[in-house]
């Protein structure tokens, strides 16, 4: 009798007990679609709409501006320096954290997260206090005629600071989930550290690594707060793409501002796409691994 009641309860009108009614479902899906539509899709659409509103030639002419060209060049240059540095750091720290046990590991992982939870403005501020004219090393730098602030080194430093967690954070959970059995097997077969890393670890983590690098790159190219503080906004010299967007926008050159923005948006979309692929591949790999 009790069993019969339970049966009836679990399947209500042929619907599983662990599912909401179709009406509730539809409402919830509508809420989420509206929320995402307003906050995620529309901003994306508006960037491309504003950029192309005056036609393709207006869009292309935005890139004729030598200052804009220089901003694109500088952004690429900064990324080319900062991203490899952070990739090596990400690999090294992920290896240290996932392959060994040592005291202070939680502290180290929190430190790696630091740029994610402090204001990017602080990421710029700390370097100004260090290298600025009235900073700790300012006088010495002026005496030796070394320019860090309002120049490439400062921009690279601030960018590197803000983006260093991304590769490491992508790799650490992945490498933890995969475990070290294959690396240990390689060690018993006589492989050296470098051989283990290159022949066993890299193939296992390549998709996660690729996503981490691409995300790090997107954030490096798009960094605004920290770079804004250390760059000095010198047109044609220290303006990166996001800073150039700000200037164009504040000068009411909306089409040009949004045209530059489309480049960074395309990069962001590529990043999301690669994340999608990387997660799919990682899930497949883990599934294949757990079957063995």
């Amino acid at each position: 009798m009790a069993g019969a009641i339970a049966m009836r309860r679990v399947v209500v009108k042929g619907r599983r007990a662990t599912a909401e009614s179709p009406t509730v479902r539809r409402i919830l899906i509508a809420v989420v679609t509206l929320f995402f539509g307003l906050f995620l899709v529309m901003p994306l659409v508006v960037v491309f709409h504003e950029a192309f509103k005056r036609g393709l030639s207006a869009y292309l002419s935005a890139f004729q501006d030598p200052y804009t060209q220089h901003a694109v060049y500088l952004t690429l240059l900064v990324a080319v320096i900062a991203v490899p540095l952070n990739t090596i750091f990400g690999l090294a720290s992920a290896w240290a954290i996932t392959k060994f046990s040592f005291p202070g590991k939680p502290l180290l992982t929190s430190l790696i997260d630091l740029p994610l939870w402090i204001s990017p403005v602080i990421g710029g501020l700390i370097y100004v206090l260090l290298f600025g004219r009235h900073g700790w090393l300012g006088g010495w730098l002026i005496d030796h005629d070394i320019r860090i602030l309002f120049a490439l080194p400062g921009i690279v430093l601030a960018t590197t600071f803000v983006t260093f967690p991304f590769v490491a954070r992508g790799l650490i959970p992945l490498m933890q989930a995969q475990g070290s059995a294959e690396e240990e097997a390689a060690a018993t077969l006589g492989a050296s550290g470098w051989q283990i890393f290159r022949r066993v670890t890299i193939p296992k983590i390549k998709w996660g690594l690729l996503y981490g690098v691409i995300l790090c790159n997107a954030r490096a190219m798009g960094e605004f707060g920290a770079v804004s503080v250390v760059s000095g906004h010198i047109r044609g010299r220290t303006n990166t793409m996001p800073l150039q967007i700000e200037i164009l926008y504040n000068e009411y050159q909306f089409s040009a501002a949004f045209a530059v923005a489309t480049l960074l948006c395309a990069l962001a979309l590529l990043t999301l796409f690669l994340k999608f692929i990387a997660e799919w591949r990682a899930a497949r790999q883990l599934a294949a691994g757990s079957r063995s």
Partner: peptide, 23 residues
């Protein structure tokens, strides 16, 4: 929608700023 969830993470903040302002 799932993939777009990370957009605020990948989109430069300045771009988000001008896009929201225009919107």
């Amino acid at each position: 929608l799932d993939a777009l969830t990370d957009l605020p993470f990948a989109m430069p903040t300045a771009v988000a700023g001008i896009a929201l302002t225009s919107l």
